[in-house]
Each structure stands twice: as C-alpha cells, then as structure tokens.
Simulated assay, not measured.
Amino acid sequence: MEKIALLGLGNVGALAGILLQEAGFHPTGFDKLPPRTKLPFDCIELDLTDKATVKNALKDFDAVLSALPYALNPLIADVAYEDGLHYFDLTEDVSVKARVQELSQTADILMAPQCGLAPGFIAIVASHLARKFETIRSIRMRVGALPQHPTGLLGYAFNWSPEGVVNEYLNDCEVIEEGEHKWVSPMEWLETLYVNGQKYEAFTTSGGLGTMCETYLGQVENLDYKSIRYPGHAQQMNFFFHELLMREHRKQAGDILTKAKPKVDDDVVIIHTSVEGIMEGRLHRQEFVRSYYPKLIAGKPRRAIAWTTAASVCSVIEMVANGILPDKGFLKQEEISLDYFLKTKCGSLYREERS
C-alpha cells in the first residue's frame, strides 16, 4: 500500500498528505478547488460528488483517505468497495459508519472509518486502559477542541467542521448505562471536571464513541462519551438550538456559529479518559489526561485539532501498510494497540505532550 488518494484538502486533509509523504507513502490530493497553499504532493481538481468521475480518478490507487464532509463518504466508500481500495475516513456520523460496516462484511479490502481524534484515538486510549482490568465498572471518554484564550459566553471557536459540530450537538448519543445499550439526548448529563486546575464542563454529544458500545456491551456497566467545553457553553447552545429553534435549521445554524466564532490558531485539544473497575482484586481507577497544543510540522505551525486528527488516521494507515493491522474487513479503533500507535512515525507526534 503506497499510492494513497487523499480526498479533501482542507487543513486536516492537506496535513494528512504531508504526514503520509513524510512516512514514505505517495499521496495525491483531490478536491473541487485548488489548495490554498502549495503542497509538496500532486493535487488535482475533481468533482467529488460524481461517482463515475471519482471511480475513474482512483483506479490506479491502493487506498483512499476521505477527509471530506461526512455526507460524501458513502459515495467514496462505495467506490472503494467496488474497486478494491483500502478505505479510511474521519467521520463522526453514525449512519456513515453503519454503511461502511455493512460493506465491509463482503469486502476483500480493509474498511476503516472513524480514524480521527474522536472517534478514533480516544477509543484506542480507552481500550488500552480497559485491558488492564479484570472487570470494568465504567469507561468515561472526554475530548475537547477549544481556544486557549476563550472570549464571550460561548467560550468557543469553530476550528472543526460546522456540520460535524451541529450534528454532534443535535443527534442522539449512544451509551451503556447500568449494562444496557441506550440512546440518550445530546447536551445533557452535564458534569464538571478539572485539568491542571482549569475548570471545564462536559456533556453528551453524538458520534465520539465509534463502535465502543458494540464492543463493550456485556463487559462494562457504564460507558459514555462527552465533549469538553468551558463552563456555561452547554446552557448557551441549548438556548440557541432549542429555545430559538435553530435545531430546525442546521445549515443556517452552522453558518451563524462559524461567522460568530471563527477559527483561531491558538487552540488546545484536551483528552480526559478514565476507566474504573477491579484490578488485582481491588477497585481501581486509571486515567489518561493530556493537553495537546499547536505544533510546528513541515516548517509551519499546525493547529492542535488539525495535527491530532491527521496524525491519528495516518498512523492507522502506517500500521496497515506495515502488517500490524489487518488488510481486510472492518477495523474498530478500539482493536488498535496504543503502544504500536505511538511507535509509528505519525503517531509519535502524540508522545511529547502531557498534562
């Protein structure tokens, strides 16, 4: 697996191409528009909404990495399945994951959705902690992509896809509660947590668990995923979506929010994962708490959300190419070894920072 078709050349997609090239792969970028800055690999303008056009463009590649909006991923997954290309994406959308999982049942190639930060790396971390326990009482997964210097009542900046964020705030959330698989409302189960003395809140959001509920049902009493925000954010977003009825106008809601709270360069990605259960006959709690900041990569500063997401999927691609992971079927992120992940060239970017 050497020739990688990279679809979508936004901040994450472009950086993924750079990391793949540095790891020894041969990426080619595709997007409907040329990249904003010159990239060190070939880039081709292409209509990525037309299946026949995509099939023709990808016929000579070994694998495809989709960094496109989630709604385009079913088309790309179909092309990969039909033409025998290993498939990787970053989607948090539950229905897209289900479609890819369905295709994988009869696929002769690997189909690996949800390879980003959350879902993705967070499941790798959580399962790494869970393997240490004899029995598991709870798995708590918390992730926040935040401005380092928040302003206003929202205390937020839309450094990620507005469509993805809106879906996370409005779509129902999977959990395991008291041993039962359930769907609960987003922006609820509000809790307070601290990282290095800084106070945050966390609440339910959709998609971040990936396939964890499927994997751990029957093995854990309680399992959930929440997004981390500065205090007060959930109250403001509930007002925006529900009292002002913006939940009925998702596209407009995304446009309003990104205009009001545009991207910032000084961001931080916070991971707070904990597992509780019986270890060596005693009740114990293990934690993985990290804060990741912008990093200089290929001579340019990269936002924390961009490099953590890109490095995660590129590490998975490395492990597949090196034979560490399977090259056929459906890949669950929680099946990936954290130790192997951190030993890859791309995954090693995660090793340096610690709260």
Rank of each mutant, 00 (worst) to 15 (best):
T37R: 15
Q101H: 12
L153W: 03
G152V: 11
R140D: 12
L39P: 05
E134M: 06
L75V: 08
L72S: 13
I176E: 02
Y169F: 14
E45V: 15
S161C: 13
P35Q: 10
Q114F: 10
D172V: 05
D47R: 08
A130V: 03
G155I: 09
L170C: 11
V94C: 06
G84E: 04
S138E: 12
A118M: 11
G179N: 05
R137S: 14
F88I: 12
T151R: 12
V100C: 05
K97S: 13
Y169C: 11
T91Y: 03
L153R: 13
R36P: 00
H149M: 09
D60K: 12
A123H: 04
G152R: 08
N56C: 02
G179A: 05
S66P: 00
R140L: 08
M111E: 04
E178R: 10
L153E: 14
F61G: 10
L103S: 07
P162H: 07
P69G: 09
V175D: 02
V125A: 07
V79M: 02
A71M: 14
L103T: 09
L68G: 01
L103F: 11
S161W: 09
L72A: 14
N56R: 15
S104R: 08
F158V: 15
Y70I: 08
L129H: 04
F133N: 09
Y169R: 03
V100A: 12
F88E: 11
E177C: 13
E174M: 12
L65M: 12
E82Y: 00
V166E: 08
N171A: 15
P150A: 07
I124Q: 07
M111R: 05
K59T: 13
V54H: 00
A77N: 06
I176K: 03
I76D: 02
V143L: 13
G120S: 10
H86G: 03
F88M: 12
P119S: 10
E134K: 12
R36S: 11
W160P: 00
K51P: 03
G179K: 04
I136V: 13
M141G: 03
